[in-house]
């Protein structure tokens, strides 16, 4: 099975890195506070802190690149096909005739990088297809395209 034809926007790499940053900052801040609050600081604290920084750095560098290579999408006349994830990867295929709704969403970080994500839902609660990190105008065009295609497909999708 081949991968879907289209890559997402290259800006998505920055978006993924920035989105992962607050979590790491929170962990680092907690470690620093614990370190400073101790009356008798041990040598373990700077070691743990250095390890965390190294881990965070590796995650923030590797994860977005890896994700960018994996995240792909494709729309054909009869189906929507997406691939997402990095360590755990998932490919989802849904026929156009079973598509029920097409939503776009732009979170604060996504707006920062002029990105949007598109969610295609079917009647199954297990099968929403999400395409993250699309350029905003690509997403808009994609939604229009899908709306036309699903309208011509007809049926109630269950």
């Amino acid at each position: 099975m081949r991968v879907p034809a289209n890559l997402v926007s290259p800006r998505a790499r920055w978006y993924w890195a920035v989105r992962a940053l607050p979590g790491w900052l929170l962990i680092l801040a907690t470690e620093v506070v614990v370190w400073l609050a101790r009356s008798a600081p041990s040598a373990a604290h700077p070691v743990v802190l250095a390890l965390t920084v190294a881990l965070a750095g590796a995650h923030l560098i590797v994860m977005p690149q890896w994700r960018y290579r994996v995240h792909r999408w494709e729309i054909t006349d009869t189906a929507v096909y997406t691939q997402s994830g990095w360590f755990t990867q998932e490919r989802r295929i849904a026929p156009i005739s079973r598509v029920q709704t097409v939503d776009t969403e732009r979170g604060p970080f996504e707006q920062l990088f002029r990105l949007a994500n598109v969610t295609v839902t079917t009647a199954s609660a297990a099968g929403p297809l999400k395409i993250h990190g699309l350029a905003a105008d690509t997403a808009a065009a994609l939604v229009d395209d899908l709306t036309v295609r699903t309208r011509t497909a007809g049926g109630d999708g269950t």
Partner: peptide, 10 residues
């Protein structure tokens, strides 16, 4: 069946 998901870990 509506569609298919193929999921795989590393």
């Amino acid at each position: 069946i509506i569609g298919w998901n193929l999921k795989s870990t590393y």
